[in-house]
Amino acid sequence: MTQPYAHPESLVSTQWVDEHRGQTDLYRIVESDEDVLLYETGHVPEAVKIDWINDLNDPVVRDYIDNAKFAALCARHGIGNDTTVIFYGDKSNWWACYAFWVFRLMGHDNLKIMDGGRAKWMDEGRAMTTAKPNHPPATYQVTHPRRGIRAFRDDVLRHVRAGRPLVDVRSMEEFTGKLTHMPDYPQEGVLRGGHIPGAKSCPWMRAVNPDGTFKSRAELEAIYQGELGLKILDDVVAYCRIGERSSHTWFVLTHLLGFDTVRNYDGSWTEWGNAVGMPIEKG
């Protein structure tokens, strides 16, 4: 028999979503994609769109929106404090996990991911629509933000000095320092290449199957506990370039494998590799 995930309630199937999508008073389905226009080309009926840039990030300061703006965002989409929010999206739920993490950071309790995301829903020929739903607004209050799932640069520096585990979920080229920016877009880049000393490389994609669903618990344990040698009680920091891919790994470690203390360093390489005096390892 397959071993269940540590928190199986945080993952639902496309079939489950199809059966429950009409219960809009209890559930809010949210599409979060990399591409800002993908939702407009078709989405799960009743699903609303939350964009990782325009909705979740502050337009001026490099930070997430504040409590008041988050509350307004939820209220606008008819998400109350008790609403269960189910995220799905493109690229194996990469951005869905990012939105999930931001919602958790803001203290929202009932959150789920639709396993397999948008691609699986479409491959199965399930209903899609371009009609925007019109959910009645809710009232929302940020009551207990969970700041503990976020690491800042100084936290990470202390973490490195204490010799605690870090997971770098970027591509191997980025990890070794071979690649710092994309051709033709040098301004996108980072001044220094490499990784945070002591970090182990484990590209986020390793946690998913070709159809975008998460690998089984046994397969995930073989990667994170086996290969990387992480232990369930470890204090772990995950990072990537801006904290999006590492949200995916954060979800895998905390919700699927049951790690208690995992922080996402959203400043990630674009902060570390540009900051003065940060220790860097190459190769």
Binding site: V36, D184, Y185
Partner: peptide
């Protein structure tokens, strides 16, 4: 122009991350 995104006034709504690939294609 390689900065077509800026010229179209889309830089703010798309932000740089999304612009990466497009600049690469225009260059190509």
């Amino acid at each position: 122009p390689l900065d077509l995104i800026q010229r179209l006034g889309l830089a703010d709504v798309l932000r740089m991350n999304r612009a990466v690939g497009i600049g690469a294609i225009l260059g190509r």
